[in-house]
Design a protein around this nucleic acid. Sequence first.
DNA 1: CCTGCAGACTAACAATCGTTAGTTTTGTTC
DNA 2: GAACAAAACTAACGATTGTTAGTCTGCAGG
Lengths: 195, 195
Amino acid sequence: MARRSTVDRRSEILSEAAKLFHAKGYGAASMRDLAGKVGMEAASMYNHIRSKDELLEVLCFEVGDGYLNRLNEISASDLSYVEKLRAIIRTHIRMMIDNGPAVNVANHDWKHLPPAALKRFIEARKRYEKGVAQLLEEGMAAGELRRMDTTVALFTLLSSVRWVEPWYKPGRAIAPEVLEETITTLLLNGLRNPA
Amino acid sequence: MARRSTVDRRSEILSEAAKLFHAKGYGAASMRDLAGKVGMEAASMYNHIRSKDELLEVLCFEVGDGYLNRLNEISASDLSYVEKLRAIIRTHIRMMIDNGPAVNVANHDWKHLPPAALKRFIEARKRYEKGVAQLLEEGMAAGELRRMDTTVALFTLLSSVRWVEPWYKPGRAIAPEVLEETITTLLLNGLRNPA
DNA sequence: CCTGCAGACTAACAATCGTTAGTTTTGTTC
DNA sequence: GAACAAAACTAACGATTGTTAGTCTGCAGG
């Protein structure tokens, strides 16, 4: 019988940590809780991880780097600005659906990162925001997007795709494609009926 | 010299608790931290409050009830549906600006409410969501709003006004009126340039 | 001036936290 | 089966948690 490999155990801990941190919050989630979910004693986990902080750090940067990489791909593509925005919205929704707990931990518990990691994380997020803001500005300059305050548009856009994870469950009768289409329509064309 | 009244001390504790819970998260905020901000020993606070849980509970329902009351006023008014939505957006922005820490605690730390309060809070939030969803549906039926999935529109709308508090600081050079106008324009008319 | 009480204090409680040390179990390799 | 290492365990550490008990202080009303 093959022994469960170290890397399996480690990623199992990480994935359970994401779920637990999301459910109870980083501060309220205990290592003993987490160990229980993974099926071992708390002390045993330290054969696979360095610390509780490390778990949070790995989860946050895994998510953050994912977003940044996708943004770079999208920015460098030759899509129209409207289509680039669509791609960004799609990225957020897909990340939430595929990777919900980790995304939520990165969104809600990054404050508890140790100081050095916290600084890096804030910088990474700022880079992401700058990148999306640039797309918005260029899209306005190109006449594809309505002229409005870039910062307000940026945060409204980023915020409006954050609700998916807490609400979206596989059981709900709405396909990811419909979700994407509806949110995109709302953000691009607005709630108001043009008729 | 008038002694600081009990009610003052209590509301001072509540207001500092809102700031501290927001800054560190409910779980990570300790009563000794809080006592330091208020300027007394941790034990002394128990002359004014019942428990840490009570602080969270008061903050969450203060905010929740505020939103529900405003929604009821708006629903009962004879505004158009577009104007009702505008009023809801304005309410969210004003609450964030005037009452930021408490609003953020209610949004982020309600999970840590004790079971009975948690149940009540979830029910209240569901009532609020139902109320806004009804406005959206009626607005669509009346032809004022674009036809789309109500649930998706609901959560996108509610989520898109949540970013204000973490970002909005008095120092930032943007007036609440501009903020309201930009967000409203975006949500009602969309990002895309109609030209 | 005396009495009473609200409201602050000190000290301590039991529980729980993340983590470490040291030991034992378990599976793989010769 | 002997030897080795990975990974589990038990036990405990020091710190911190929310909270309680008991005491002291200082202002208000008579």
